[in-house]
């Protein structure tokens, strides 16, 4: 799959078709559809069963999932598949025979882990352990759900006493996974924001007040313009983060991640506002994106990330 003529947009379009196909299906059926379309192996090498694409292709693919409001651990599957590529479990994940969730806070040593989603249906959960991470058999731990942010796709806490480890990641491998996680979750958030923006735009164009579409109102148009600006900034920042500079040096991902999450929250919240009462209902799905992005935000403590960016800047200046 090293044909240079294939552009990221083409993959994103194909991914979009698969995600649309998966919509409304059960967890197992979604897994089958997404696996069939190769989505879990996007950033896994071809010789290990993947599509052999780099992260710059991963960004638009995951963004489409955000835009189409896929409620499935796609990013988690992609990350664990990539981290365990070449191992049996990695192959099983690429193929959709197994599924993995990730708990982003806590650790095996602390005895509990938090900020995981989609745990109930997953076979495995990845949890920090020492400097690296451990992939646990989900059934070996005790799972508690916290539905306050999202009753449909709650956040989970895991009690890890006696949990069975099925694979481990080195410190280096776990650090790589976290880097990729910030890129892909950032892309998911950017896509979720873009989807909210598109919804708001068509709602505003169709909604007439005092004889004109609401989208002709300057307050609305300026809000929409800010959404667009922030959407473009998120994507540009993420693509920049994964590219090397002129001297071949790698870049940090934190600013792009924090930017994408913050921008996405702003955009979705504004899109809800622009929808008026309708934005506030359960039927219009904007709230799903808000919950999903806020779960990422909480898992990585974006506020804390911003603070650490500041501290690092101060230390380096």
């Amino acid at each position: 799959m090293s044909d240079d003529s294939l552009r990221p947009e083409d993959f994103a379009e194909a991914a979009g078709a698969a995600i649309t196909d998966a919509e409304g299906k059960s967890f197992a059926e979604k897994t089958a559809v997404l696996a069939e379309n190769g989505l879990f192996g996007v950033i896994v090498a071809e010789e290990q069963g993947g599509l052999g694409l780099d992260l710059s292709f991963g960004i638009p693919i995951v963004a489409v999932a955000g835009k189409l409001q896929l409620r499935y651990p796609l990013v988690e599957q992609m990350l664990v598949a990539s981290a365990l590529a070449g191992e049996d479990i990695g192959a099983a994940i690429v193929g959709g025979e197994k599924t993995a969730a990730i708990a982003w806070q806590g650790s095996l040593e602390e005895g509990y882990a938090t900020h995981a989603t989609f745990v109930a249906d997953a076979d495995y959960v990845l949890v920090a352990s020492g400097e690296g991470a451990a992939l646990l058999d989900r059934a070996s731990g005790e799972v508690q759900e916290d539905p306050s942010l999202d009753p449909d796709y709650p956040q989970y806490t895991l009690k890890l006493e006696g949990a069975a480890t099925v694979a481990t990641l080195s410190a280096e491998a776990f650090a790589k996974l976290k880097f990729k996680a910030k890129v892909l979750y950032g892309a998911f958030a950017a896509g979720a924001g873009e989807g909210a923006m598109d919804r708001a735009a068509s709602h505003m164009a169709g909604r007439v007040q005092f004889g004109r579409p609401l989208s002709a109102k300057q307050a609305v148009r300026h809000t929409m313009a800010r959404m667009k600006l922030l959407t473009e900034t998120s994507y540009a920042g993420l693509q920049r983060a994964i590219a090397q500079d002129e001297f071949g040096a790698a870049r940090d991902v934190d600013t792009a991640f924090a930017g994408a999450i913050g921008n996405s929250c702003f955009i979705i919240e504004k899109a809800i506002h622009l929808h008026g009462g309708m934005g506030f209902t359960w039927e219009l799905p904007l709230h799903c994106s808000l919950r999903d992005v806020r779960k990422i935000d909480a898992a990585f403590n974006t506020g804390g990330v911003v603070k650490s960016i500041g501290k690092a800047f101060i230390a380096a200046a």
Partner: peptide
């Protein structure tokens, strides 16, 4: 507090809408 303010955050989305939107 976690439970209360999580719900409050979601509910607050309506505060700029009901009883006359901010605009």
């Amino acid at each position: 507090a976690k439970k209360h303010f999580t719900t409050a955050y979601l509910f607050a989305r309506a505060e700029s809408i009901y009883a006359g939107v901010s605009e």
